[in-house]
């Protein structure tokens, strides 16, 4: 186990009320695993990702990387897990050249000498298949796809073991998205990287990931190998998402709930086609097992 999340809660305080974005998530990610974290806006997947990076404090629970807590971790641990965010435009400092953006993490972590860092920059650009002449350019002069490659190169600069990617290709055009996905896949394979890949796009997750956790209303509702979760989903919510993937006109009645007012019991019950009385009161737990769902009705 490389990453362990145990009963994680992430809360935000807004206008005197507490919003429970993540409400008790436990999951483990093994070395070399590529976990797809899927769910709709407001389900807590980005909050969970930020907590995994130690960027968001936990209201309860713990998150460990290689046996050590990520919250309050020293730089030597933190450099081993790196984020890639969705909007490469805002993730990069608009006033810093590509070279300066790539050099920064190396300088902060005192990697190598000034001369060896310059050689390292060239290697990073080769790795993400960017021409070396982009070194002197500012982010705004690059295309969206090129910016996301720079972002990826920056995340890889410290040779992390785990990448946490939050919707890294969602803002890209289809033709460019395929280039970046191919690149990411080949880097993950050659460097034996562990990935936590957050996406609302099940097709992208199915392509890249070997396991999937489905989040709804701040909880993981289904977990298992990607082929099984996406091929034979158990939870009614996952089933609805998978149906929408094949039939564009399939939707789920109702709308995703607001983090400010989670429905009681199973949070999916107001939209669920197979709801029973118990779902309105009790919250179903996520059982143990290879492929499992938090549902009273679906029997795995």
């Amino acid at each position: 186990m490389l990453l362990g999340v145990e009963g994680a809660h992430v809360h935000y305080r807004a206008r005197g009320t507490t919003v429970e974005a993540v409400r008790g998530v436990s999951l483990t990610v093994n070395k070399g695993e590529r976990l797809g974290l899927v769910g709709e806006s407001g389900c807590g997947k980005s909050s969970l990702a930020r907590a995994m990076l130690g960027l968001e404090p936990l209201a309860a629970g713990a998150i460990h990387f290689d046996g050590q807590p990520v919250h309050g971790a020293k730089a030597t641990l933190r450099r081993r897990l790196q984020p890639v965010f969705q909007d490469a435009g805002s993730a990069l400092d608009p006033r810093m050249t590509v070279a300066a953006s790539l050099r920064e993490p190396l300088e902060l972590h005192r990697v190598g000498t000034a001369a060896s860092r310059e050689a390292h920059l060239d290697e990073l650009l080769d790795l993400v298949q960017l021409p070396r002449e982009v070194k002197g350019r500012l982010p705004r002069t690059l295309s969206a796809g090129q910016r996301q490659r720079v972002n990826l190169a920056r995340a890889l600069a410290l040779e992390p073991e785990l990448l946490i990617l939050d919707e890294p290709v969602s803002a890209l055009d289809v033709s460019v998205q395929a280039q970046v996905l191919n690149l990411l896949e080949s880097i993950a394979r050659t460097r034996a990287l562990t990935l936590v890949f957050i996406s609302h796009d099940l097709d992208v997750v199915a392509h890249l990931c070997d396991s999937v956790a489905v989040m709804y209303a701040g909880l993981v509702v289904e977990r298992g190998p990607a082929s099984r979760v996406l091929g034979s989903p158990l939870h009614p919510y996952t089933r609805a998402l998978c149906a929408a993937r094949v039939k564009a006109l399939e939707g789920t009645p109702g709308e995703p709930p607001s983090p400010a007012h989670w429905p009681p019991g199973c949070a999916f019950h107001p939209r669920c086609p197979v709801v029973v009385e118990r779902c309105r009161k009790d919250r179903p737990a996520l059982p143990e097992g290879e492929h499992r769902a938090a549902c009273f009705v679906t029997d795995p």
Binding site: S143, G145, D173, V174, S175, V176, Q177, A178, Q179, L181, N182, E185, S186, D203, V204, A206, H207, L208
Partner: peptide, 19 residues
Amino acid sequence: ARPAPEHRGGALEAIGGVV
């Protein structure tokens, strides 16, 4: 170029270059 069940496995057929 779209990742889809019908072209599972292997690299996606990316279009090189940009618009």
